[in-house]
Design a protein around this nucleic acid. Structure first.
Length: 716
DNA sequence: GTTCTAGAAC
DNA sequence: GTTCTAGAAC
């Protein structure tokens, strides 16, 4: 049998069958032998859905149709017998709705070669009454009735339990469900650490305080992964021994996450106790419900304003935690400095508390190495590493503080409550008072960050040494600023007026300053910049919209965009074009098939006048939307030659700032055919060889190799 | 049900 | 500028 031989080769095998009763499953379970972990994913979807699917499925061997399908499904559902751990499964996941199925698929597809999942039963609904009554007995008796439906399978009765335990010690106990009985007993002795609860009818025994944290700064803040993984392992190694029985878990959502594998191997090299620290692939906001991993504390990769939104972990946590998190955070602090952490006790009404049993969120801010974001560190990894170390120290210290507050409490009753309505998740560390004090301490530390606000407001060098400036601030002044943080940042902190003498008030978002910084301090951006002259800087567009896409940047203060251009800039415009053409020449030497256009956006998104030098293949994964396309292919794109002519004639460039350009229909820039959406347009332009419209060929708007003239371009 | 876009966040 | 995602469009 192919499944058996694949298993022998050490492969993982997935059997997709309607194994609706125990007997049918037994044969498949035998295939595995004792060295193989056997998992079941039970799709117990609504009958209605099964029926409608059978009807739709025309290639079904049984050719089920209409009423016949309904009859078959009904008969199958009547016979169904849910799998049990005692049959030999080490893990069973129940799916009742599409979402469950999706979560299961995500969970399994995210597994890397070294990953494993905790054993136990997950997501099962309607546990029988005897199970609910039985948990105390379960804890005392080795072999309780109905044990097979309980999580934490009895090792004597599970054929695979040895494998499961071995795996457990490899990776740490991923979920508390997997805790072998002996461990549970041990943990119970330390009653302060023990906690049991029911959730949606699932019975679990959760005893180990756990902090789940994302890798800081490596996503949007572009921190080097090698360096980040060294720091994570270093800091985890430092703290893990100080945390008693508590665990640290590095979480990443993505499939085959590079940072997780780096950290895993480095942690193994350093012999860090895998029971105390391990990595986990999953959604940090659904660790318990989606992955069976109970983490009472989760870390949030925060932004300095402690605001929801943005992307990644921060957005996910705020959205999963509901408005409770935002208001709880707001009560404690208004901003967070890089390297700092802030403990926020999560209100028991927050969905994260109810569903995921999270009691505290620790906001933490790592260093920012992304030039597209404000206040980035300009590739200064000396400072970056220092701040990242500090961030992890702050995070783990905060977690330790939460643990301490828990220990200082009178011990909780050993009585274990049951009932799905009871959000017991909070009981374990419910000592808001002390935590609040801790939080206030953090808040004191955060005063430093208030000077950051001031930085942004009054001065603003994005590469400013924040630390140095913090020390110069006087707290009293800061309080005044802090009080208004919310609106303040909105109106002036986050955005700045350009110095436009004509009185037009173009407001630049904080994200739009990167080019300005590069123009002013190109030497600090050696990674991106490819040519530096007195009055011009050339760089590769960070998100090129074609095979070749350069920006020729003017180094004149106050020259933010085309609107600021006047006659005095004509020599500069001319030089920018010359420099651009030099680069085109180089590119054409490498690839004669390229065709270029040089021009400005009528209304640029990024501050500081820049000339786009862009090849007309538009072959780029970064070209994603209508605005991208239309900003290079409609009159919104102002050819350099035309701009210079207009400035020469009228002293000003003509600006097509009609917003409608961005929502114009998508037309091929060569044959002018219209396309319904970006993917179809991209398919078309990858093939279209029509000559370019005459209007582009005239006056030298297009730049190409002489060899090319007759092939792709009209000869006018 | 999946693909794609638009709008809001930074 | 990008990212994220709800919900429109297919």
């Amino acid at each position: 049998m192919s499944a058996a031989s694949a298993l022998k080769e050490g492969k993982s095998v997935l059997i997709d069958r309607c194994n609706i009763d125990r007997e049918q499953r037994a044969d498949f379970l035998k295939l595995g032998g004792s060295g193989v972990q056997k998992h079941a994913v039970v799709l117990d979807l609504p009958a209605k859905l099964c029926i409608s699917r059978s009807v739709k499925r025309t290639d079904h061997e049984g050719n089920l149709q209409g009423g016949k399908a309904a009859a078959v499904v009904n008969r199958m559902l009547q016979k169904k017998e849910a799998p049990k751990l005692s049959e030999g499964f080490s893990r069973i996941t129940f799916c009742y709705i599409e979402k469950d199925v999706e979560a299961a698929i995500n969970m399994y597809s995210a597994l890397g070669p070294g990953d494993t999942l905790s054993s136990g039963c997950f997501g099962q609904k309607n546990p029988e009454a005897k199970i609910q009554l039985g948990i105390m007995k379960f804890l005392k008796k080795v072999d309780p009735p109905g044990k097979d439906r309980l999580v934490g399978s009895n090792s004597q009765n599970s054929p695979c339990s040895k494998t499961a335990e071995e795996k457990d010690s490899d990776l740490g106990r991923l979920g508390n469900h997997s805790a072998p009985l002996e461990h549970i007993h041990q943990d119970k002795k330390d009653s302060a650490n023990s906690e049991s609860a029911t959730l949606s009818g699932i019975i679990s025994v959760d005893s180990v305080p756990t902090l789940a944290f994302p890798s800081l700064s490596t996503a949007d803040f572009h921190f080097n992964l090698e360096k980040a993984s060294d720091i994570i392992v270093e800091k985890v190694g430092e703290f893990v021994t100080k945390l008693g029985n508590a665990r640290l878990v590095l979480v990443d959502l993505s499939h085959g996450s590079k940072i997780l594998s780096l950290v895993r191997s480095k942690a193994a090299q350093k012999n860090i106790d895998p029971n105390k620290f391990f990595t986990f692939v999953g959604d940090i906001t659904r660790l318990y419900s989606g992955g069976g991993l109970c983490c009472n504390v989760i870390a949030n990769a925060s932004n300095w304003r402690l605001k929801p939104g943005g992307g990644g972990v921060n957005a996910a946590i705020y959205s999963a935690a509901g408005p409770e998190l935002e208001s709880a955070t707001k009560e404690i602090a208004a901003s967070l400095a890089p390297g700092k952490a802030l403990i926020v006790p999560l209100p028991s009404t927050s969905p994260l508390s109810v569903k995921e049993r999270v009691t505290h969120v620790i906001h933490v801010l790592g260093p920012n190495m992304n030039p597209q974001r404000p206040n980035y560190l300009n590739n200064d990894y000396v400072k970056g590493c220092k701040i990242l170390r500090e961030a992890y120290s702050s995070l783990f210290e905060s977690f330790a503080a939460i643990l301490r507050t828990k220990k200082s409490l009178p011990q909780e009753s050993n009585e274990i409550s049951l009932g799905s309505q009871n959000p017991l998740g909070r009981n374990c560390f419910d000592s808001d008072q002390k935590v609040k004090r801790e939080a206030v301490d953090e808040c004191e530390m955060n005063k430093k960050s208030k000077s950051l606000l001031k930085e942004v407001r009054h001065h603003v060098s994005h590469t400013v040494d924040q630390k140095a400036n913090f020390e110069t601030e006087k707290p009293e002044r800061l309080e005044g600023i802090l009080g208004k943080t919310g609106t303040y940042a909105k109106h002036s902190g986050d955005k700045r007026d350009s110095r436009d003498e004509t009185g037009s008030k173009k407001v630049w978002g904080s994200w739009s300053q990167a080019l300005y910084q590069i123009a002013m301090h190109p030497e600090k951006h050696s990674k991106d910049v490819i040519q530096i002259l007195d009055d011009i800087v050339v760089l590769n567009d960070l998100y090129p919209k074609a095979r070749k896409h350069l920006l020729v940047l003017a180094r004149v203060e106050g020259l933010d965009g085309l609107a600021d251009v006047c006659k005095e800039h004509l020599p500069l415009l001319n030089k920018m074009q010359e420099v651009g053409l030099k680069w085109v020449e180089r590119f054409l030497n490498e690839d004669k098939s390229l065709i270029f256009r040089l021009g400005y956006h009528s209304v640029p998104s990024m501050r500081q006048l820049h000339l786009h030098v862009i090849s007309q293949d538009f072959d780029s994964k970064h070209l994603k939307n209508k605005k991208h396309w239309n900003s290079f292919t409609t009159p919104f794109f102002r050819d350099s030659v035309d701009v210079m002519e207009e400035v020469n004639k009228h002293g000003k460039a003509i600006i097509k700032d009609d917003e409608s350009f961005h929502s114009m229909e998508l037309r091929c820039h060569r044959c002018r055919s219209a396309h319904p959406n970006i993917p179809r347009l991209k398919t078309h332009i990858s093939k279209c060889q029509a000559p370019f419209p005459n209007v582009l060929v005239e006056n030298g708007r297009l730049v190409f190799s002489p060899d090319h003239l007759n092939k792709c371009v009209h000869s006018s």
